[in-house]
Amino acid sequence: MVKKTQHDKENNGEEYVSTVLSLLDQEENVVSDVQKEIFIDEIKELPPIKEGELNVSGVYAYDAGDKVEVKVYIRNGLSYNLNLQKIPFLIVNSKGETLAAQTFNLSSLGQLPPHSARPVKLYFKKENLKVDKIPADDWEIVLNGEFNVTSKVRPRYEGLPDEISVEDKLVFDKFLDELPEMEEGEFSISTFSVGLQTNGNILVTAVMRNATNKPITINKMPMTVLDKNRRAVKSQNFIMKDFTVNPYRAKVCNFAFPTDVHPENDQALDGWSVVYKLVNIDGGKHIKRV
């Protein structure tokens, strides 16, 4: 067994992040507290990583006959979840010479939370070694070139009214938490509710989520309300004024479609939905079925 012990812990003014142990749910139930303490101690001994960095650090390399077992910690220095897929690794020496090269599918690792470290055992096939054996004191494992990483983002609310009740905030939070996570770079619009108000407006409440690293400003929003039978009822192109969703944030927005129907009480339009495009209206009569 080869144990890695050399670590450069000099801080040259870069912004470093600390990482904490992250195990899969099934591992949490079977890994002993003693083993977890060993993991935590090993993580503390790893060299620091920079904010925004995906890092792999080797702990040991062990010749297991037809393969070489390499224990590593994969650390996520980013501020959002990562899902690793096919990742190419190299084992190199201090001269930069390649000792082994192999690509591993790490999708079974699941989601790697922000600022976390996960222990992994990689098994290099002997056919992928460039040398007879990994030298005891001169090896390092590194990520090789481009690799397939998908980042998952869960935006949080901004701009909720200060006077919102605790109950309403819990409802909005629950809705946001139940939406699927987003890929880095996506923007989405989700319908929170559709209802008919006593003033005759069909009120659509939507939640817009920005999973990009830049603010997104919306100037126009084409929308069509569909009844429970998926028939277009109302269609309108809303002009938005200074409506911006900041990076990794979610914002609530209301849209009102006037009608000539005035119920005695506000009522939810169960089964109704919204498409975010303009659709031709077939006579516009279906609202009378409410």
Score class of each variant (00 low, 15 high):
Thr5Tyr: 03
Asn11Cys: 12
Ser18Glu: 15
Val20Asn: 09
Gln26Arg: 13
Asn29Ser: 15
Val34Ala: 14
Val34Ile: 14
Glu37Asp: 14
Glu37Gln: 15
Ile40Ala: 12
Ile43Arg: 02
Glu45Arg: 15
Ile49Asn: 07
Val59Thr: 13
Ala61Thr: 06
Asp63Arg: 10
Val72Cys: 12
Tyr73Glu: 06
Gly77Ala: 03
Ser79Thr: 11
Leu84Gly: 00
Ser107Arg: 12
Pro113Cys: 05
His115Gly: 02
His115Cys: 03
Tyr123Phe: 15
Lys126Met: 11
Glu127Trp: 04
Val131Asn: 11
Asp132Pro: 00
Glu140Pro: 00
Val142Thr: 15
Glu146Arg: 14
Asn148Met: 07
Arg154Gln: 03
Pro155Glu: 07
Tyr157Ser: 01
Ile164Gly: 04
Ser165Leu: 01
Ser165Ile: 08
Asp168Asn: 13
Glu178Cys: 04
Glu178Trp: 07
Glu183Pro: 00
Glu184Thr: 05
Ile189Thr: 10
Ile202Met: 09
Ala206Phe: 02
Ala206Glu: 06
Ala206Gly: 07
Val207Cys: 12
Met208Thr: 09
Asn213Thr: 11
Asp227Gly: 01
Asp227Ala: 12
Arg249Cys: 07
Phe257Ser: 02
Asp260Cys: 02
Glu264Pro: 00
Gln267Cys: 04
Val275Arg: 11
Val275Lys: 13
Ile281Cys: 04
Lys285Phe: 09
His286Ser: 15
